[in-house]
């Protein structure tokens, strides 16, 4: 049995999910020969450390580490000080400067620790730099949860579709926009009414700009361009149009002619814009679902769909990444 000591950096919705999934699945995952142990949790209040592994029940439902932290260290210092094999980086994302996640990931990789993250910012800002840093230090950087949440996309291409040339990836990478457009079409809601509903349900943020202006989708397009197509794309290279100008009349007009309107991210074209999607296309998924069509030379077009966000769903993608690090031959050799 190989023990994997995990430092969790960031204790928001995803951080809580990671703790919970590791608790629920620890016994099951032992079948893969791994004993996953979260030895530390860090947020802006400090660090909670327990070498025997932190049981989320010890936290009594606390949302932050205020008053619970037993070490007065945060951020990079916590990554340095805690003896761990792997860092899970799940702090809030910023795709302009990538911080604080970028600093955390650089620190962890430099320390020879594997990194698994759901944080898009650092990868949008410095993907190739971080990949090189991981290689120099003989560790792995995994980021499945950054694109499409629990929907397997990056690992599907890297493992199952290996040997294929990937010609394009097009899809819906933002569940909030998909929800708003779905409701505007089905219920004939105006944009602002559908947005308010999404906010009340917790599907959209109080400041929805990041989602509805296509910024989030563009970030994912950059990550796919760099990781799958080996490009050196930056956020500014993406042509972005959001969904704010789409009207329910336009959605209904499109429906009568056999189409839906969806916010589509297109790689390697580096475009994000609302597009007409035939009603019977595999891309025509509704609600908060994400979907991606991968066009390949050998396998034709493969489409995957799944939940793009959520605490437990994102944590599931993170745990899969952790297991794949220790079960891949590269590391064993």
């Amino acid at each position: 049995m190989r023990e994997v000591r995990i430092s969790l950096v960031g204790f928001g919705i995803v951080g809580h999910g990671v703790l919970e999934v590791v608790r629920r699945k620890r016994e099951l995952l032992k079948k893969t020969g791994l004993d996953l142990k979260v030895v530390s949790v860090t947020d802006i209040n400090g660090t909670l450390y327990d070498q025997n592994g932190i049981d989320p029940q010890m936290l009594h439902g606390a949302r932050t580490l205020e008053g619970i932290a037993n070490m007065d260290i945060i951020g990079k210092e916590a990554i340095q000080e805690v003896d761990s094999d792997l860092v899970v980086e799940v702090t809030p994302t910023n795709i302009v400067h990538g911080q604080p996640g970028l600093g955390h990931i650089e620190e962890a990789l430099s320390q020879g620790k594997h990194v698994v993250t759901s944080n898009k910012g650092p990868l949008v800002v410095a993907f190739n730099h971080l990949k090189e840093l991981a290689q120099e230090n003989g560790v792995m950087l995994k980021y499945e949860a950054t694109v499409g949440g629990t929907m397997p996309l990056i690992s599907l291409i890297e493992k199952n579709l290996v040997g294929n040339d990937i010609r394009s990836i097009r899809g819906i990478f933002n569940g909030t926009c998909n929800y708003i457009l779905t409701r505007m079409m089905e219920e004939k809601y105006t944009y602002s009414y559908a947005l308010t509903e999404a906010q009340e349900l917790g599907i959209a943020e109080a400041d929805p700009t990041y989602d509805v202006d296509g910024i989030d989708t563009a970030g994912k397009v950059v990550i796919l361009a760099n990781s799958i197509f080996g490009m050196d794309a930056k956020y500014d290279d993406v042509q972005v149009t959001g969904i704010k100008d789409v009207t329910s009349e336009a959605l209904n007009l499109a429906w009568e002619r056999g189409y839906l309107i969806k916010l589509i991210g297109d790689v390697p074209a580096l475009k994000v814009k609302p597009m007409l999607v035939p009603r019977r296309s595999p891309l025509a998924v509704g609600g908060t679902l994400n979907v991606a069509s991968i066009e390949t030379d050998l396998s034709g077009t493969i489409t995957v769909t799944g939940l793009g966000a959520g605490s437990i769903e994102t944590a599931s993608a993170i745990v899969s990444d952790i297991v794949s690090i220790y079960t891949s031959r590269q590391i064993d050799a």
Partner: peptide, 8 residues
């Protein structure tokens, strides 16, 4: 004008 093209 917002021009919405079909995905094909």
């Amino acid at each position: 004008l917002l021009v919405i093209e079909p995905i094909e």
